[in-house]
Amino acid sequence: MEFQSLGRREVDQRIGLLDRLAACFTDHRNPESIEHSVRDLVAQRDLTGERRVREQDRGNPLAASSTLNRLELGLPESATSDRYKRIAADSDAMDRLLVDLFLESYRKPPRKVWLDLDATDDPLHGQQEGRFFHGYYRCYCYLPLYIFSGEHLLCARLRTADKDASSGSVD
């Protein structure tokens, strides 16, 4: 599938990305108290400030940033008991989704796959948990690991910068 000329909505309509990504979360909130579904939160999560204002101006109610942060901060082991972080991501399901999307982009699965492992700095501003000064990048940062095959993202891991760039990979 060729998506370079398509917008986010068109891609979502073709492959059901938002529904599939939302299915990677478990929502332990009280259904009667939910204003924004997990799918709505996932859809809003990638909107920049300017786009969020435009969506709001169109009459689309948006979740507060504290609600959106719950997508990222909820932990599976505590989501049933934590009052504020009741949405938990299943990281294994997200990994499977990225690989499934990669495989679905081919008519038949490729015979060989070349993996490109990239670690890059994600500079921090403030006293975030896990911050670490990285001498190479000369800043406090995280050092996420990304695994690509061509243009396809297959895996992403947020890591602290006190690790070697190749940490988590195998020969």
Rank of each mutant, 00 (worst) to 15 (best):
I34C: 10
E35Y: 13
S37Q: 07
R39Y: 11
L41N: 06
V42F: 00
A43D: 13
A43H: 08
A43E: 15
Q44C: 02
R45L: 14
D46T: 11
D46M: 09
L47I: 00
L47Y: 07
G49A: 13
E50C: 01
R52K: 15
R52D: 06
R52W: 02
R52A: 13
Q56G: 08
D57W: 01
R58I: 00
R58V: 02
R58S: 11
L62D: 00
A63L: 02
A64T: 02
S65L: 13
S66G: 08
T67Y: 00
R70S: 04
L71F: 01
L73T: 10
L73F: 07
L75N: 09
L75W: 05
S78E: 11
A79D: 07
T80M: 07
S81K: 15
D82K: 02
D82E: 09
I87H: 06
A89Y: 02
A89T: 02
D90T: 07
S91V: 10
S91E: 12
R96H: 07
L98T: 05
V99R: 10
D100S: 10
L101H: 07
L101Q: 10
L103W: 08
S105H: 01
Y106E: 04
P110N: 08
R111A: 15
D116E: 13
D118G: 14
A119K: 01
A119D: 03
T120Y: 13
D121K: 08
D121N: 12
D122P: 04
D122Q: 07
P123N: 01
L124E: 05
H125W: 14
H125A: 14
G126R: 00
Q127C: 10
Q128P: 08
E129F: 07
E129V: 12
F132D: 10
F132L: 05
H134K: 08
Y136T: 11
Y140P: 01
Y142H: 12
L143W: 00
P144W: 01
Y146T: 06
I147R: 14
F148W: 10
S149G: 01
G150I: 08
G150K: 05
G150H: 06
E151L: 13
H152V: 00
H152C: 04
L153P: 06
L153G: 06
C155I: 06
C155W: 14
A156P: 01
R157N: 09
R159S: 04
T160D: 10
